[in-house]
């Protein structure tokens, strides 16, 4: 009995790690196809981008870094493809200092090259500015107050895309934005909703890391945002809606066995713990 209890409650961590590693690696080789049933939150985000028309403006905020790459980058790239195929004008900015620019710029340059989109005509990289709340309030008046120059140091109003976007008043602000898509690994999305959506009524959707997802779902329930893509599962759903087989689809195959193994170990540990208490 003692041996069984010891086995159940004192499993060596190296055994756990080894089993987990195999549960991750084997599906990557086998590549099973997974069924998916996208949630309403993901469908809402997808439809928000799909509903954009030629000439509409999509503001993207890449507020994440490489640590959230597997969860957010697949959605980011699909959103860019959707937007570029519809000739939507894309503005890219970040609140996440260097990390947001690394993932944001690499993603938009990759997709723009693939779809033959031109910088300054089809998309513009505004860059990074610190002070999230101040930046958001500043953008409500005129984007040039916050981003006088783009990522490459040229005045943003010197690009053709600027003239295409702004109205007769020659001022670019939230009134010109048709959709804001935030990619959030932190609380910046809360500010987007609480300041920009609440005050200026900007339509917005988010792709968020799984850690942040529970905190963002209430915004969807309260109809403050039109869609939420949560974690790798959300990214996988988003790719399946777009009929893409990207990074999320490729690595999602390992997520299910890894979760199952963790559940089994939790179950084993608890069974052992309960039996030990009964025996005592």
């Amino acid at each position: 009995m003692k041996a069984i209890l010891d086995f159940l409650t004192l499993i060596d961590r190296r055994v756990i790690y080894s089993v987990l590693i195999f549960s991750i690696i084997i599906p990557l080789f086998l590549k099973p196809s997974l069924p998916t049933r996208p949630t309403q939150e993901v469908i809402g985000a997808y439809n928000a981008v799909e509903s954009l028309k030629d000439g509409d403006v999509l503001l993207i905020s890449t507020d994440y870094g490489p640590s959230a790459y597997p969860e957010l980058q697949p959605v980011y790239e699909v959103v860019l493809e959707q937007a570029f195929k519809k000739n939507v004008k894309v503005l890219l900015m970040t609140h996440w200092q260097f990390q947001g620019l690394i993932v944001g710029v690499s993603g938009i340059e990759k997709i723009a090259k693939k779809l033959d989109k031109k910088y300054g005509e089809d998309y513009l990289i505004l860059g990074f500015k610190p002070g999230a709340v101040g930046v958001m309030v500043g953008l409500s008046e005129d984007f040039r107050n916050v981003f006088p120059n783009d990522y490459y140091g040229k005045p943003i109003d010197s690009y053709p895309i600027y003239k295409d976007i702004v109205g007769d008043d020659d001022v670019l602000n939230y009134k010109d934005i048709d959709l804001l898509f935030g990619f959030e690994a932190g609380a910046t999305g809360d500010f987007w909703v609480q300041i920009v959506q609440a005050r200026y009524g900007v339509k917005m959707a988010f792709s968020v890391t799984a850690v942040m997802a529970p905190g963002y779902f209430p915004y969807y329930q309260a109809k403050q945002v039109v869609g939420i893509v949560g974690g790798l599962k959300g990214a996988f759903d988003y790719e399946s809606l777009a009929k893409k087989k990207g990074l999320a689809s490729l690595i999602m195959v390992s997520q299910i066995p890894a979760h199952t193994i963790i559940l089994l170990f939790i179950l084993l540990g608890n069974v052992g713990f309960i039996i030990r208490r009964i025996v005592k």
Binding site: I21, I24, I25, L28, S67, Y69, P70, E71, T209, A210, V211, A213, P214, G230, G231, L232, K233, L247, L250, I251, S254, Q255, A258, H259, I262
Partner: peptide, 23 residues
Amino acid sequence: GASFGYTIMARFSLLISRFYFLL
């Protein structure tokens, strides 16, 4: 519990993506 479950999903996503990168 739901938050913790989501956190596990996030950490595994990272781990899997690194293994995917290596392989």
